[in-house]
Design a protein around this nucleic acid. Structure first.
Lengths: 342, 342
DNA sequence: TTGTACGCGTTATCAT
DNA sequence: ATGATAACGCGTACAA
């Protein structure tokens, strides 16, 4: 339990702690011979520097915080390793923090920055209507990843990497219209959604309008307000069931997230509908599952890997070169699959 | 950037740092009045104690390490929040570390324990053939979660929470036999698998034997040795494809993991086979997706939430009460679904 | 009840 | 090239 410290190593080597420190940190002015010997003793005793002491001393730990909103979001799960590796390439550590979908990521971030002396932040998910006040309160550079901010929020107050939820949602619905679907139902998030759910819903609205298709309120399905559960397959299943039982007329279902689409797909097939012959289906995000469902499900893929890499690049350009806040918008990849290929 | 420290607070309050410290840590002997005032100043200045300094001082940080093997394992993703919350209830912090599926979790754990002065460890996944040496080298109590150790490893050297992969796999195949399936193909892990894959394969072997069904090597499909990829849907799809094209006779497919089963399911349906009429299908783990596939997929559910809770309970019983190593085996839940209900 | 002073393990700045 | 020592921010025994 009582770990071996740098002092122990120094003693065992009959040198001063400073010499050991030099050996560890590859300092130039040290006799290669003593260095070799010290490293050997370190090996033998399985000595490993105390992280807390290092950070305390360095006063500013080389650590980037990653605040992940939504515990089992699969997109974020795919981004995590990319971020860790990317950050490591700059010789920084990463500190991952998961917070609930209903939590306040900015408040949490503030705590972390102080507590762990973080040098920068990457947010995965979050509300898109933060106030200027809130954004200004973050004392280190940060990048919002996969979250479209409200237009009213000044662009110079934050950096971001995202796909344009509104625009790509519009594209998707436009595509569905082009395929001949006219009565497209949408499975949206919760009614009070302040995140991507609403933006995608807006894209749906405007695309229909552009095709002169009257929008029926009845074809908009909201989920119950069980916050954590909004983007679950179960919720998709429930909403689709409700749609089917409501006897509302529809020839296509568009879900604002693939997880919702998968649940919905089962409900549709179970009710005897043929996909895509009697009913089209499309999702959003590009989860792997959509490729292996039968029928495979049309989706708007988000290039998560590239986005994560860009977020890291962007963050360090601000950190190292003092670059100003930037915004990078990635195009979604409309992936046409069996569910809409009649 | 230059954070406010406990000294600053002390100065602003005209008290000594120790008094501030007492206020923060709810010490009994402090004037409620001064305490109130100090807390107020702390609020106003957004003071938050430096984590590193606290840990360094406490010399033994109240932190539990969680080593997660396999980045996007969905089972583990479900366990994470349960673990965090459970650990927090004991007033400990958790430190999550993800390592690649080919990494050495023990070596990594050793590093972490020293570096961050961890008090205990929970492993999510890992090799099941560790040596006694390796287990003894871990200097803090630890619990292996969801990993069945080899019988030859002395039970008193580690604690574990798991379902019995061999036994439950046996049960599953036994069930399939009972349903009348006679030519059951298995989609196993990679040939050199040292983890659950092999144990589940063994269960398959013995269950067939018990039913006097001769085992055909041709019905055992191994994946390529692309380590990270073994339990992916894509790999399931590939193996099933290979099976179909091989013209080997089979009336049922059993995948050692649900993710593999999902990929396989698509391949089977795509080839025109009716499930379950012409071919049964079963997986293992109990992923949500299996419930929403069409047809829904029979699986052996692992009670992940309960297992995570038990792991925490077990760890702290060792930590606090000095309890000896323990082993808790959870029964799998054979969930019969459409894919095997002819 | 409050203040003083030391030490946690490490790195950096001086001397030597 | 190496050693002694201060400092990082905090908690706590001890003294007051």
């Amino acid at each position: 339990m009582e770990s071996v410290t740098i002092k122990d190593i120094a003693k065992r080597c009959n040198v001063a702690v400073s010499t050991v420190s030099r050996a560890i940190n590859n300092h130039p002015d040290i006799n290669p011979e003593t260095r070799r010997k010290i490293m050997q003793v370190i090996e033998e005793n399985h000595y490993i520097p105390n992280n807390s002491a290092q950070n305390l001393k360095k006063s500013v730990s080389k650590t980037i915080g990653v605040v992940i909103k939504g515990a089992d979001n699969q997109l974020f799960a795919k981004m995590r390793p990319v971020l860790v590796e990317g950050i490591a390439q700059y010789d920084y550590d990463s500190d991952m923090e998961y917070i609930s979908i209903s939590g306040d990521e900015i408040r949490e971030a503030l705590r972390l920055v102080k507590e762990k002396r973080l040098k920068g932040l990457i947010f995965l998910g979050g509300n898109h209507n933060r106030t200027a006040e809130e954004l200004k309160s973050v004392p280190v550079p940060f990048v919002m990843c996969t979250v479209d901010m409200e237009e009213t929020v000044p662009k110079e107050l934050y950096s971001s990497v995202s796909v344009d939820s509104y625009r790509e949602s519009y594209r998707m619905v436009d595509y569905l219209c082009t395929k001949g679907y006219r009565k497209i139902a949408i499975l949206a998030g919760s009614k009070g959604d302040e995140s991507v759910g609403r933006l995608r819903l807006n894209g749906y609205r405007d695309a229909l309008a552009a095709h002169q298709i009257p929008m029926e309120e009845k074809r908009i399905l909201y989920s119950q307000d069980w916050a954590e559960d909004v983007f679950s397959m179960e919720n998709g299943y429930r909403m689709a069931k409700k749609l089917i039982e409501s006897e509302v007329d529809f020839d296509c279902v568009y879900a604002v997230a693939d997880s919702i689409a998968i649940g919905a797909c089962r409900a549709l097939l179970q009710s005897g509908l043929k996909i895509p012959e009697q009913c089209g289906l499309a999702g959003f995000d590009g989860l792997d599952e959509t490729k292996y469902y039968y029928p495979s499900i049309t989706t708007m893929r988000q290039p998560v890997k590239e986005m994560a890499e860009e977020a890291v690049r962007m963050l360090f350009s601000m950190l190292h070169k003092g670059a100003p806040n930037q915004h990078s918008i990635f195009p979604g990849e409309l992936t046409e699959r069996e569910s809409t290929m009649k």
